[in-house]
Structures are given as structure tokens and as C-alpha cells.
Design a protein around this nucleic acid. Structure first.
Lengths: 338, 338
DNA sequence: AATTGGCACTCGGAAGCGCGGAGTGCTAGA
DNA sequence: TCTAGCACTCCGCGCTTCCGAGTGCCAATT
């Protein structure tokens, strides 16, 4: 059905349309790309491609524009991820290299991605569930208030204030609980934590139990609740440059909701496997005119979180994919090294 | 020069233009607002107002539009802050009431402001410099790594990892330093901290000094560096609704830079004193088509930080000012209560 | 002296018109 | 199966026209 040449035509249409933002016609196509056939032939192919739903014309007697389905085919079979130029690679290295703590790494990453792709960048903080406990600290704040600080190997810190209403927590009880918790949990995966502490209150001397119960409930809560993750946005200004004008409001609204952003990046997959969602493939209503290119990143073969960019469906997929993949890899390296 | 009626005309122009977004002419003006004079008279006044630079016409033979200077006069002398409706007050209370920790208070505040004003909301985290030390915690992470956690009375937590290269920090040295630091600093203003710890290394036994020096340098650094504050944005989607279309990119770019946002809110002033910056009064280049309404908020008469909204110069100033003032007050109350 | 009515004038924006050109589909021939 | 030719479509552009809201000015009125 779709022979080699028809695919070449589709590829050419996508490439031209992406770079010019104008419907592309048979003549221009046959000229610019040396397909070795006449415009008339190209027209036939285009008619076929249109029947199959890969391209469409905005109005009769205009050129063709790729449909979501067309972009899909292009991404799946007609394009190869474009590696970055050496200059870009160097830029990444120097730009990310200077980062000191996790916050800064994430911040720089998002800026870098936005700049490289000229689109909106989204970076998720490394997931708690894929990390292990480095240390748990309990800090007495007052007679019945304790602050719990959970530190993970990825450099992430979660802190919560534990309020025990009128209960009195003694210093020694706090100290005891701290050492027990660390003995049990240090080096363990966060996912194991609930099991590991289930029987803990019973094992403690009676006076310590109320404290332990309260602290544990907060600890577990923080594991569940915050593994809905934090995301950072950058490059929103790139939305102003064309394409979205009509649906701009919807897109901005979607980007304001963290939940939406997290869903956007999709389920975690292996690092350096690229996911591309085109147009209506995005679950969220307001993003039917947008595409998302995302990848997991992490240390080794373990995905800690995802990052990606969002742009119009009319997007330079090979280039964007190259940038996302490269950045994901570098961030992994940086994280591993720190 | 500017008699009572001319001012009334200016007020009417501003109000009409804000609500209709169309240049307002003498006829419509004399009709809608019962000024008791004929269109011809209004025209004379308008000519005068234009000479003085309070209004301008987009092109010959069009209605008049307020200039920045016109808005300025309107805000300073012709309008009164519009109090919120009881329904809105209740909405604020219930919306902010449910917040549990500082992060959530700030988040809800920014959403609330954005929704209430239908503009972009900016909220600054309570300043470190106006807070006092609640507790300092040191957590050993490894042989030569310590985490420092600084907790302030406003519920804010700063944490830093202190890396002592190859130096060995003993558990007892850490414990000693912790208790000394807390004895000296608990309850003290953050601004006093540098003085209070200046002579500290010398007063400690020799073996503890390297640790103390390293930790202190990080502590001081965090005070200086992070008092450039964190800000949170909300309601960016409201930018899509008109007015900015041309300068949208610039505005979005400005909003991405924290430094700009902080400057935007201006120097801290007393709570519930409203600051209004109109058009070119904003320092930042890209924001010459925008206005900012901001206010300090805090507990008692102490301003901890600022919050505000950003919108087009064509903005409902009385309403916006009312909303900003009300929200600032409520946030102060909430903070005081927790 | 301030206000008003009248009047001529201006100019932007919408509506209508014509036209060129890029693009298409179709058919007949290589 | 591809190509050349041809008739047809329709968008976008520029041109004109026209309408009306709005202005400035002046003379008359209070």
C-alpha cells in the first residue's frame, strides 16, 4: 500500500511543513527534494496519503499538512533521532557541570532543555520511590512538636513537622526513636519502609509508643503523598512564538496544574527510551494541539524520574528527540557523580 | 487647572475604557455617566486632559484612552479601594483556612489571588531576615559530611549539606556544636546571627574548630544567599485573555526570572500599604505594558514579604487593590495563627 | 466666561470586488 | 505506471467604497 516513495513524500511534507509553517504543494515538493519524479506523480501519492489519513488540506486547493497520524508515522518509521552538534554537547556539559545541589541541577536542566529545543521544558524531581533512605533525623521543636527530616541518596530532603497535640515527647524518647529508625531504615528502599516499620510501636517501651505512632504516621504519609512528584517548568515564553495562539489559554492552564504535568510525562520507563505523544494522544483535553517528547533519566539503568518538552504538533521531532535524549543522559551522569 | 468636572471626566474615561476595552468618545461618555453637561463640553475637557497628557487618542478621530499618567492620577486621587463582597471574604477564609504548612499557605494564596483578580499572582515566601531562629539541627551524613537544617519561626526550613572534604567530623564534635549553636542562636533574629557567631571558633576546643568553621561558613552563606527570596507564580493563563498579545513573549520571559519578580514587588513596606506601579514605572524593560499592584504581608506590623498581581495597565485598579489588600491581611492572620 | 448646538472634516474598519497564483483532480498519452 | 497538459477552485491580497463614530472649531446662548 505505502511503497517506499510514498513514505519519502510524507517525510518531505513533514520536513517542509515543519520548517516553513505553510501547507506544502506538489510542485514545491518535487522541486526542493529531488525525488526524481514529476509533480503529477507526487500528486497521486499525496491523494493516496490523504485517503489514508496521513495528511490533510486546510481547504480545497491548498497544499497538504500532516495530520497527527502522519506525524506518528514520521516519528515511528521515517525519522532518526538527530544527535546534537559537538558545540551543543559542550554547552550541555559546561552548563550542567556547574550545578552544586539537586535543586540547581534540576533548575539548570529545565533551562537548558528549554533553550535547546525552544520549547517548554518539564523536569520531574527524582522520585522518592526509587531512592533509598540515607538518614532520618528527628528534631524536637517544643514539648509536643518534632520535626522529621528524611534524607535520600538522591540528595532529596523531605521535612515535616509532627504535631502531637498535647502529648509530651521527652528528649530521650525522641533520641531513642531516631536511632531505632536509622538502624532499621538506613540504606533501605523507600518502598520497603512501610513493611519495615509496621511492627515498630509494639517493640518499643510503652512510654515511647505515642511518639512513635505519631511520627510513623507522618513518615508514611509523606512517602505516599509526596511520591506524587514535584515538577519544574521552564521556557514558557516559547509558547508566545506562534502556533498555539488559539489554544494558548488552555495550554497555559494545563501547565499550571502539577498533576497534569506529571501525567504528561507518563509512566516512568527506562532511561534513554524516548516517548513521543502527538496531539490527541495526550490525555489532557487542553493539549490536543501539543506534542510531548519525554524520556526517563536516572543513574545506571534505573529511571528516577522523567523529563521532556512540550511544543506544537508541528515540531522538529528528530531535533527535539535528540536534545531530550542527550540531556536525559547527561543529567543521569551528573546525578551518578554527586 | 484641573477642576472637579475634568477629574470626573477622567475617572469616567478610565472606568469605561477598563470595562469596554474601547476608546471612549465624548458622546458615549456624556450619555452613560450623568455628568449634566453636553458632549461638546466634555470634548473641551478632553482636549485639555489630552494637552496635559492624561489621555491620548490612538489615531485622529478616535475616542480617548488613558495614558500611564492618567491611570496614575486615577489611582492616586480618583478612586477608592473597593472592599470585597462578603461572599469573596468567605471564599478567602475557607480557601486559606485549610492550609497546613507554609508551602501550602503560599500555594493557596497565589491561586486565590489569581482567581480573585483574574490576573497573574506573585507571592513571595516570608523573608528569612525578618524571622528568628527556632532551631538549628546538624545531622551527620558520613565521616566528613553534615547536613545543616535551619528552622525559623515562620515555619520555613533551610537545609544545606556541609562537605568537609577529607576532614573527619566526630559525632561528639557535631553534638557539641549543635548545642552551642542552639544555645547562642535560638530565638535570635537572623540578622543578628553573623555577629553572634563571629568569635565562635576561637571559643571552642581546638579539635572542634575545623568543623565549626565549615558549618558556620555554610550557615552564613545560606543567610546571605537565600534572603534573595523564593517567589511563587500563579494564574499565568490569565495572560492569554487579551491585552498583552504583542508583548506576551516579553512578559512571559520576565516572569520566568525570579530576580525580576522579586524586584517587581519592590522593597518591603508596611503590611496593608498598597503599592501600584503603572506601565513604564516598572523598572524591567519587558513590563512597560503591565501594571503591578503589591502589598506587604506579615504578622502584626512587621512585613515578612510581599505579594501582588501583575496585569495589563488597563486594569480594574480599585477591585484589584481591594483583593490584594484583603488577601495580604488574611495571610498575615493565618501566619500569625500557626 | 462657560456652555451648548451645529457643522464640516477625518480616519479606521468592514464590506465588496477583482485578480493572480498556487494547488488540485482528471484524462489521455508515453 | 508515470507524465504532461488542462480546466477548475479558492485563498489571499490589494483596491475601492462607504459608513459612522469621533473630533475641532465657531457662533450663539445663558
Amino acid at each position: 500500500m505505502l511503497d517506499e516513495r510514498k513514505l519519502a513524500v510524507l517525510r518531505a511534507i513533514v520536513e517542509d511543513y515543519v520548517s516553513t509553517n505553510e501547507p506544502v504543494g506538489s510542485k514545491a515538493l518535487a522541486d526542493r527534494h529531488n525525488l526524481g519524479v514529476s509533480p503529477a506523480t507526487v500528486r497521486n501519492d499525496m491523494a493516496m496519503l490523504e485517503d489514508e489519513g496521513y495528511i490533510a488540506q486546510p481547504h480545497t486547493s491548498a497544499g497538504r499538512v500532516p495530520t497527527d497520524k502522519g506525524y506518528r508515522l514520521f516519528v515511528d518509521r521515517l525519522s532518526t533521532v538527530k544527535p546534537l552538534s559537538p558545540a551543543e554537547r559542550r554547552a550541555i556539559e559546561t552548563f550542567l557541570g556547574g550545578a552544586v545541589d539537586l535543586d540547581e541541577i534540576v533548575l539548570r536542566t529545565v533551562r537548558l532543555l528549554a533553550q535547546l529545543t525552544r520549547q517548554v521544558a518539564v523536569v520531574q524531581y527524582p522520585m522518592l520511590t526509587r531512592s533509598y533512605v540515607q538518614h532520618i533525623e528527628l528534631v524536637p521543636l517544643g514539648p509536643s512538636r518534632v520535626m522529621m527530616v528524611l534524607i535520600t541518596n538522591t540528595g532529596r530532603v523531605e521535612q515535616r513537622v509532627v504535631d502531637g497535640d498535647a502529648q509530651d515527647f521527652t528528649e530521650t524518647a525522641v533520641a531513642d526513636l531516631r536511632s531505632v529508625l536509622n538502624a532499621r531504615l538506613a540504606g533501605k528502599w523507600l518502598t520497603e519502609v512501610p513493611d519495615l516499620v509496621a511492627d515498630l510501636p509494639e517493640q518499643l517501651p510503652a512510654p515511647d509508643r505515642p511518639l512513635a505512632a505519631t511520627v510513623l504516621s507522618v513518615l508514611l504519609e509523606s512517602l505516599v503523598e509526596k511520591h506524587e512528584e514535584r515538577v519544574v517548568l521552564g521556557g514558557t515564553a516559547n509558547l508566545a512564538a506562534g502556533d498555539f495562539s488559539a489554544s494558548l489559554r488552555e495550554v497555559l492552564e494545563a501547565l499550571e496544574e502539577n498533576v497534569v504535568l506529571i501525567r504528561l510525562l507518563g509512566e516512568a520507563s527506562d532511561p534513554s527510551i524516548l516517548t513521543v505523544r502527538i496531539g490527541a494522544e495526550n490525555l489532557h483535553q487542553g493539549l490536543h494541539t501539543a506534542s510531548v517528547v519525554s524520556a526517563g533519566y536516572g543513574v545506571g539503568d534505573q529511571a528516577l524520574a522523567k523529563l521532556g518538552v512540550l511544543g506544537p504538533t508541528r515540531m522538529d521531532y528528530p531535533g527535539t528527540m535528540g536534545a531530550v535524549r542527550a540531556v536525559a543522559r547527561y543529567v543521569g551522569q551528573i546525578l551518578a557523580g554527586s
